[in-house]
């Protein structure tokens, strides 16, 4: 049920398998406080999955960010994680203060979900709080022994900072905090840093770093790079995207991101670049 830790759902091609809703909005909101903890967990996921932007759903999910009843053996907060993930999809900035508080939760996955969702909500006022998680640089962004994750959700934080910090008073500090991560030992962290650095500086060297990532030996990381290039709309990557060793659907969605940045709805004439992108996309259908 929870999404892949590598890619936020908005960046992924639609699932090949359709999923049918099985709750009503009222039922899902009511289930967020059901005595059965598994129903609460499911309801929080469901409200995000089906993008229920009803203000009552948002209010109930914000309350669920403080939940203390649902705990894992390791002290995690499953309901808080799902509530934080869902709030990122509901486009309601009332969730920002609660998500910022989640950035200091002792559950790594709550911090990760909160960072991802803050990046999606588009409210740059949380950037200083996000940057605190990058303090300590490379040394602090290392794996936790015995756990499958780093000390901080560095990729999620870097991605959110890349989306939010450009052209804000925190831009220079963001660049300073993100740049060292280009040399992280994990390639997925390097790529996240390259994506954010491109968004922060618009320098081709960082877009080209993502193009190189299209040749990563790990197909999952090639997919991440496709999604990153689509998200930042890096035009010089078009041919490399079309010929990358990955499924056509990932390449199609990546090129869509490039095309969207070449389209101005009020201008009827398509640019040469837009026509070339269309031809590449047609070949991937």
């Amino acid at each position: 049920m929870p999404e892949s830790p590598l890619l936020p759902e908005r960046d992924q091609p639609s699932s090949e398998l359709a999923e049918a809703p099985s709750l009503t909005v009222e039922q899902a909101i009511a289930q967020l406080t059901d005595p059965d903890l598994s129903l609460r967990y499911y309801a929080a996921w469901w409200l995000g999955k089906f993008r229920v932007t009803d203000p009552a759903a948002v209010t109930a999910l914000i309350a669920a960010l403080e939940d203390d009843s649902d705990r894992t053996e390791l002290g995690g907060y499953p309901l808080r994680r799902n509530a934080a993930r869902a709030l990122g999809k509901l486009d309601d900035r009332r969730a920002v203060p609660g998500l910022v508080r989640c950035l200091s939760c002792d559950d790594f996955y709550v911090r990760e979900a909160a960072a991802q969702s803050l990046g999606m909500l588009g409210d740059a006022s949380c950037v200083p709080e996000l940057l605190k998680l990058l303090v300590g640089g490379l040394a602090a962004a290392q794996p936790v022994p015995g756990r499958p994750h780093l000390a901080q959700p560095v990729e999620a934080v870097v991605e959110a900072v890349g989306a939010l910090a450009p052209q804000t008073p925190w831009e220079a500090e963001a660049i300073e905090r993100v740049r060292p991560l280009l040399n992280h030992s994990l390639r997925r962290v390097q790529y996240a840093a390259a994506r954010a650095m491109y968004q922060l500086t618009r320098e081709a060297i960082y877009g080209d770093r993502l193009v190189q990532a299209l040749s990563d030996p790990d197909v999952n990381l090639r997919r991440v790079a496709l999604s990153d290039l689509g998200a930042v709309g890096y035009l010089p990557a078009a041919e490399a995207i079309a010929t990358a060793a990955a499924e056509n659907s990932f390449k199609l969605f990546s090129l869509k991101g490039l095309l969207e940045q070449q389209i101005y709805p009020e201008e009827l004439q398509l640019s040469t670049a837009a026509v070339q992108l269309i031809e590449l996309m047609d070949s991937l259908l």
């Binding site: 869509k256 389209i263 709805p265 837009a274 269309i278």
Partner: peptide, 10 residues
Amino acid sequence: DRAVLARARY
């Protein structure tokens, strides 16, 4: 959807 709109124009 801007990609669809562009494809229709083309």
